[in-house]
Nucleic acid binder design. Structure first.
Lengths: 222, 222
DNA sequence: CGTCAACTGTCAGTGACTGACATAACGTCC
DNA sequence: GGACGTTATGTCAGTCACTGACAGTTGACG
């Protein structure tokens, strides 16, 4: 909260005129009000009217900024996904697909500074994620996002390996398995009492390390 | 619609008195009306009132039989899940975990005769499944079911292998990867034009066969 | 300064659901 | 076979998410 300049043009981020700045402010206000309510009272016990009232706009206006109530909850999460894809694109071509996804995933939750929009602290983002995992009403959007991200990831992997994703099933299959494990990771992490960034990284590595052994024939050996 | 007997007691399935039989009939009527509407007009374009009217009961009564609109769509699907778990339990202990899940999955969609309730033909069940896959509004329930099934499967696998699922991550990880691939399979199958039982089995085997290779280091070799 | 386009509020309406209450129809016990 | 308690059902009213239509304001810009 150190950026308190009133109206200066901070090199970037406020490109347009008064109108655009105001829109941005309204959106941020709605976002923060919503996340505040969600993480304190819970998603279900927060009404859209409540959020709109807190920001002094009409309910109708809320829906002009966010397609639906779910959308607010995931607004901050989008940055994480974007970061994952960006990191994945940046991985050296020599790296094996699975390894590339693993590295990208580990970096995705890092900082994600105020890069492209939502000013949400890492800590709040994590609290929101835990809420998402524990709120059935948000599962639909969660799943839709997962599917979308999987799709994009599969295409990226196929491109990396120079394969046609419709002919060779490996890109999609690898991504599906990977995503399944990542979802599990997020879920278990959300339930832990020590749900910090370190714990998340730790769990991610633990699970991905176990994937190979888990698929191998017998578990009793070794 | 060939079963037109008025009140006979068909050997089994009608244990209670008139009251219970009537309830059963109402439930089945609602289920079939709903699935009929869903698969012809689509889920979103079908209102609960419409379903209730078709069966000549009040909307309130519909909600006494099904917790919500989604529940009807998944009523038939529950038999498939149950079958999967049952088959998995039946797998020989010597079989590797992954192989056991694979075999169980391949049997899950078979027949599932009118065993324990919902009289839905295999064909209708598949049409419903395709609808589920292509209807975002149903993704929430879809996901909740997936999570639940994963949980149960992981416990079963852990028990099979004599492991503590909270100490050894392998059961959950294996199930997560497996489930991820199965979800992908269902999704791709739902998009195909030849979406029959054979195609589903085929896709399942293809994808599961590719899981090992997909996880291996380099895809270019071989 | 005036005009156009964009932002917003208000209002009415739909559809999924829920609680409360009244009614009618079993089930059953004498 | 009739009285009585349980239970399925209908009706009604109300909440909440969401949407379309219309009207009023207010920046943007020539």
């Amino acid at each position: 909260m150190t950026r308190t300049q009133t109206s200066g043009v901070p090199a970037q981020g406020a490109p347009g005129g008064l109108r655009e700045r105001r829109k941005r402010r309204t959106r941020e206000a709605l976002l923060h009000a919503a996340l505040g309510f969600f993480t304190t009272q819970g998603y279900d016990r927060t009404t859209v009217d409540e959020i709109a009232d807190a920001v002094d706009v009409s309910q109708r206006t809320f829906f002009r900024y966010f397609a639906n109530k779910e959308a607010v909850a995931f607004a901050a999460q989008e940055a994480v996904d974007a970061r994952f894809l960006a990191e994945l694109r940046r991985r050296p071509a020599a790296e094996a697909p699975f390894e590339a996804m693993r590295r990208a995933a580990l970096k995705a939750w890092d900082a994600t500074p105020e890069a492209d929009g939502e000013y949400v602290t890492a800590e709040l983002r994590m609290r929101v994620y835990r809420m998402i995992e524990s709120t059935p009403a948000l599962h639909a959007a969660h799943m839709r996002r997962h599917i979308g991200l999987q799709q994009q990831t599969a295409l990226l992997i196929a491109e990396r390996e120079g394969l046609d994703p419709d002919a060779d099933p490996r890109p999609r299959v690898a991504v599906a398995a990977f995503s399944g494990v990542m979802r599990l990771t997020g879920q278990l992490w959300g339930r832990r009492s020590d749900a910090g960034a370190d714990a998340l990284r730790e769990l991610t590595e633990l699970h991905l390390d176990q994937l190979g052994p888990a698929l191998s024939g017998s578990w009793r050996a070794a």
